[in-house]
Nucleic acid binder design. Structure first.
Lengths: 198, 198, 198, 198
DNA sequence: ACGTAAGCGAGACGGTACGTCTGGTCTTTCT
DNA sequence: AGAAAGACCAGACGTACCGTCTCGCTTACGT
């Protein structure tokens, strides 16, 4: 596992952080999580796998939870953007399906489930998870819904917060219990709770 | 913490298990979980708090997860029975509201959330959690739904499995994110997804 | 390095300390010291070599210095007893020669030099070294000298303390500088400073 | 601790070594040794105290031992010269007394004891200590003794090497054990081992 | 009724990971 | 090119739990 070598250090100007080491840590953490589960995700194992000293990890991340948060945020912004511009019933339905797929298949989806789980075990994790991931995303989702309603694309039966919980909740619950999300579940939820135009 | 002593041992006939120790362990585990969270729930801490030797715990439970499962099963059968006899839309709505309350307030609800979380971290936990708690309960819930449909009390828009996921999912999701479940959320879900008679 | 196995634990009655582990630690420490020097004498290395958990070492010894002290005291009592019963000029000369040999050849001699050195670096070590080894031995040596003088075997030119320093000092100094102690050095010191009978 | 700045750099011509930094390092090392002992004498601490970068130290000294050697050699040449010109019993006695005083009181004496101690822990230190300090000084001391014998000032009972060990050994030993050197010890040793004229 | 076998509190054991500290190297930036 | 700054890999520190084990005690059962 030679890991990091021979890339140029200091990709970013203005500080001296080793970008290669940063990426090696993020990838090592994600790989370990997917391959061996959260219990194998020790700081020592990450350091070993990334070819990095433990101190390098502690210098930049206060805990392994923040490593996962970094991975999750970067990846979910990239691969699961919230469609806030001109959202339609169709684009919302697609977003929900993509979300189900993200949770089931994407390494970052595993990351999200793990953080949601760890947040149950530890209040500090819960706070950081809400602050850095959950609330920003919920805000974007509610904005999406509000805008779609304003445009007349949908007529939700509940407020944006409760509606999103009703749409997202079943998908997350299925992922947590290891069940697949049936297509008609998403369709029916959209149909009944959003009541799309025409 | 003098703990357990001076109660009569051997409540059950046929073996020599010390019932006082068993209860002390279950209560210690639950107390620790509620007071200090899962991360404080170590076997050593349980033993310390229960006034019991570590070996006594390992003799009867293969892991601390099984301790929580024991607690959860006993308490949820007692305090949150599934209304399988002559279920109506009303009794289902009540069950869902009770479930939300159970998750938010009852120590055993904390237990359930913790186990659901730990199941994300560890496959063995996931297997045992499904086997001992989740599947039996899901079977009972689906039976409740099927019976209610047969009696004409409700006309679900989806199959029993997907319907239950759609009803329970949002409640669990709210509990996991620390949010309260709004009353109208349950009402609307029942209304739209179960379409109760009259 | 299988180390400890298959001896009966709990050799001593009355407590539960594992005598096999204790000896394994003492020997491992001594071996490491002789083979690789003090800088290789880390608690982790001792534990590794002894086939023992680090915690076992910390349970019984507050620092590695105490491990060396245990070794030194046991071995020097066994292999270099102070001849306090009816000492003569001859037995004192022999004791000094044995002492030179002990410092140069015996693993426990290396131990003594190391502790004397470490006592220069660390005041806590100095205190414990004096308390547990140096002062008891100096008392015994002065008693030896005093008794020999009372019996008329020797007529020291100085008080017992200064005389012992003058006799032992050169031997220790030679050992510290890696020089051999010439035979006639000991002989001359005894002759000139103790002025033995006839 | 603003440390070094604003003196003129490049005091020596011909290279670009910063003399101010050099002195700052030597003084910082000595101060730390005297104030907090050898265990506090880390390269990082020296750099911090001297207001100098770690790399500056590693550029000019292969190890902290060489820093101490530099200090020791400069100071002991200055404050404890070996009286090789026309030595007498008196000057030798004075030298020995000064030596005892140097070990007990002078910061550089602490330095010498520390190096002698560290030489027990590390063979590389032992080699450099002998090469740079101990052997040159022993050669000078033996020359002093030989010349004094040639001049008829003293008639040593042993060869110069063994005699010096017999004289210096007790002084060093007392310093190592934290004991004061009694006046009559030096006097008696000179009297008995050197047998001065008249 | 009495020996025996099991459960018990206690806690030592070999391990693994924790988060911190320092060592010695290397790179960047400034002077 | 030297120096300050400080990130980097490496690995020891002392602590907390893990799950296993042995010990000596108490207690109920089966002769």
């Amino acid at each position: 596992m030679p890991a990091v070598n021979s890339q140029p250090r200091r990709a970013r100007s203005g500080n001296r952080r080793d970008e290669a080491a940063r990426l090696a840590v993020l990838h090592a953490a994600d790989d370990l999580l997917v391959e061996h589960g959260f219990s194998a995700l020790t700081v020592e194992a990450i350091a070993r796998r990334a070819g990095v000293a433990k101190q390098t990890i502690y210098r930049w991340w206060p805990s392994k939870v923040e490593i996962l948060l970094d991975t999750l945020i970067e990846d979910s912004e990239k691969r699961l953007p919230v469609p806030t511009e001109l959202p339609t019933a169709d684009s919302i339905r697609t977003y929900l399906r993509d979300f189900a797929h993200f949770l089931a298949e994407d390494p970052a989806g595993k990351c999200l489930l793990t953080l949601l789980a760890e947040a149950q075990h530890d209040v500090a994790t819960a706070a950081r998870f809400h602050e850095r991931y959950l609330e920003p995303r919920q805000i974007a989702e509610r904005e999406m819904l509000t805008r779609a309603a304003e445009e007349g694309e949908v007529s939700p039966a509940l407020g944006p917060e409760a509606t999103m919980d009703a749409l997202v909740g079943p998908i997350v619950y299925c992922a947590l219990t290891g069940a697949a999300v049936p297509e008609e579940l998403v369709d029916t939820l959209v149909e009944k709770l959003l009541r799309p135009r025409a």
